[in-house]
Design a protein around this nucleic acid. Sequence first.
DNA 1: ACAAAAGTGTTAGATCTACACCCATGT
DNA 2: ACATGGGTGTAGATCTAACACTTTTGT
Lengths: 234, 234
Amino acid sequence: MKLINNTNIYTAQQNILVAVDCIIFGFDSKKLKLLLFKRKVEPSKGLWSLIGAFIKNDQSIDDGAKQILFESTGLQDIYLEQLKTYGDVYRDIAGRVISVVYYSLISVDKFELESVEKYDAHWFDLDDVPELIFDHGQMVSDAIKQLRTNAKHQPIGFNLLPAYFTIPELQILYESIYQRELDARNFRKKILSLDILTKTNKKDKSGSKKGAFLYAFNKEKFDELIAEGLNFEI
Amino acid sequence: MKLINNTNIYTAQQNILVAVDCIIFGFDSKKLKLLLFKRKVEPSKGLWSLIGAFIKNDQSIDDGAKQILFESTGLQDIYLEQLKTYGDVYRDIAGRVISVVYYSLISVDKFELESVEKYDAHWFDLDDVPELIFDHGQMVSDAIKQLRTNAKHQPIGFNLLPAYFTIPELQILYESIYQRELDARNFRKKILSLDILTKTNKKDKSGSKKGAFLYAFNKEKFDELIAEGLNFEI
DNA sequence: ACAAAAGTGTTAGATCTACACCCATGT
DNA sequence: ACATGGGTGTAGATCTAACACTTTTGT
């Protein structure tokens, strides 16, 4: 192996393709979901997979991920973070392909259904994920683990909710991320003490007769908090 | 852009090289250090850089990283973790190269000095890092951030120390990772309460006349703890 | 004898956890 | 009127953070 700081010119005879795959999490006010796509071509036609593409020569990897997300869901400017790169030699049965994997969080109500048709997309419960092609199953479990970790230190949960949401909804979301029940009083106390929610005087009555007040996430206040060095934790 | 689940064959006309770069952290019982290499060839000859290489067609990315580490330091089986993949179009001035970056933690006393000669390697204090080529500076600051985060939840600090170390040494290490002073009594109390250190009856007198007892990290006990679901935190 | 680092406990304050009842409203 | 989920307070336990003196030993 020639280490780069000693290599004269970039003469590597590589024959490796670079792909990007996106893990798309959603939340429908009851359960955490994963958006999967049915593969329409060989190899592994008919199996479920993440959505992905090969990046173009003149496109950054980040931009590639954004574009995949946009083309498959119609959404732009959404939470999107690089997870990990998968590079085993035989991970793709059709050739040497490495995959840079991103994960994104969207609120299911924002999702445009056209993609369902075009790409054979389907939301799956996290505890009901079908067999996936290649190493996509591993990617998904890594992403879930990462989601749980990140949820403790960043307000990523808010990306999975619509602009206005109730505290019980938020609690259910965190319960499905952490997979354990939370105490309603303690949860409410803690989340409100962070002072990053703005209460509206509207109620959502879809969940109960009494109705629950709708809140909005206050990003300015949140950014202040972070700038002051506080670390968010539920 | 053709999404993969819709693409017949892998006909992407890519012209992208895949490199691996390694960030090597070390600790010399006083300060946290970074191992950098002087670039011996154009472009950017003479500037400092991380050590890296292009991966081979028949080599996984993980194995590529291990090999780079072995060739540049002589060390095997050391802590090595993938950090992130950098994929901006113009990040390397000599062509389209994406870089999968790993970081590793070694104890400086294990490092074989032959590499210093062969590759023009040098240890730098973290607060005295020189200008680096391309986006390597960004990589390093991302890695430092990641190191700080991981140090809170994994016992990675122990990889930076020799097999036997004193509690004051461990404290200095954590202080240099977190960049703040820790209370000696509280630190000792907490670290001992985890019950993952094995005390020896030997003393290291290099740091003081009285001498400090040497301890070893007990990986079995640590793994038990993790298995029980406890999460390590300093 | 003294300088220099190692080692040791306690206490006040903050945070976390567990827990039970009333409220508002659609049916 | 009643069933359903929304909303509220407290007390005990646990954890965190601040703080000062004694011990050991090479010089």
